[in-house]
Design a protein around this nucleic acid. Sequence first.
DNA 1: ACCTGAACACCGTTCAAGT
DNA 2: ACCTGAACACCGTTCAAGT
Lengths: 203, 203
Amino acid sequence: VTERPYHHGNLRNALLAQAARTVRQQGADELSLRDLARQVGVSHSAPRRHFPDRQALLEALAEDGFARLGAELQHAVETAGPGFAARLRATASAYVRFATDDAALLELMFASKHQTQSDALHESAERAFSVMLELIREGQAAGVLEQGEPERVGTLLFATVQGLAALVTSGMLESAQLDGLVGDAVAAFLRANATTATPRSKA
Amino acid sequence: VTERPYHHGNLRNALLAQAARTVRQQGADELSLRDLARQVGVSHSAPRRHFPDRQALLEALAEDGFARLGAELQHAVETAGPGFAARLRATASAYVRFATDDAALLELMFASKHQTQSDALHESAERAFSVMLELIREGQAAGVLEQGEPERVGTLLFATVQGLAALVTSGMLESAQLDGLVGDAVAAFLRANATTATPRSKA
DNA sequence: ACCTGAACACCGTTCAAGT
DNA sequence: ACCTGAACACCGTTCAAGT
């Protein structure tokens, strides 16, 4: 909490924090390294020590994003009410909330530019998605979902949730409708992937 | 087919064609107006007559994209086999094909940057989506889909299809799996939104 | 180890001027 | 009506040099 927070050890963190703010508010396209350095009070070539180029900074942002996404999904699972459907709904809602609150960051996280994908980025993505895969396994163990690779079983629900977020981001859907649609999607998913046919069509 | 195709009337079209190529191959971020002018053989300020700024060019590309998307969806509906399910599957498949073949263009089309959204862009988008809305209405008229606003009834299927395309684009899904998943999504959609319960679970 | 400042090759945008 | 060329204010990246 000193007068000059950077110039010493936490320039990297200061850059990431400011960059995250800019990306959220203006999008990744608007992120200028020189501007960033200026805002943080450092010369335009100082960031280079921490991020060899622009792409490296973006990948670090994406990595942080996956870490935060994973934590939020985990928190949603843990605080959800009892019952598999409720847990699945809570997690899906947490996902769309993250996706719509930080649309530009999510875009960055999913950008296929990371061809030279650093292992760190890949691993942080895996960790985030593992929360959802674990939940699918839980549903299978509880006998509510059909058997099979969790990745495959969960694909359609994940796609739907991702698509709903995209529709909100692009302005085609009101975010007020989101929770209802997520609930519908989860319900349809549970019906479509049930192991045992339990057609209580009136409940 | 003369020696110098532009410098006269079709500079606008030449720019759009070359820009579409670049966007498809390298993404919209890599599109440079100066480079474009160079490739088309014109001074760097010539494009300004046709597109006041970079954003205007991108919007024109998006508009063309919607026109092409609409045409492809329409073609899919018209050449699909008989039966509502088949028509819906064909249209959804055409959509994901477009979305994955031209991912960067689709991103441009959906970009929320068009805040100052030109009416032309908005209208071309409406026209493209009207093909799908019309198909939903057809299903309602045939008694296969529940009543209600087509926009609302079709939302979840549209989100799923959009999400599937996003997963392929981001490398999380093999495009070989797409057709099967689209079929699953359409089947689940028809089951979830049927008017009359026809649970022939073995057919 | 970490940061600075000049330099290079690019941008998008503007504008007077050419035909 | 359509295009050119110089100019301006920005970029990302590089590199010798400072502490």
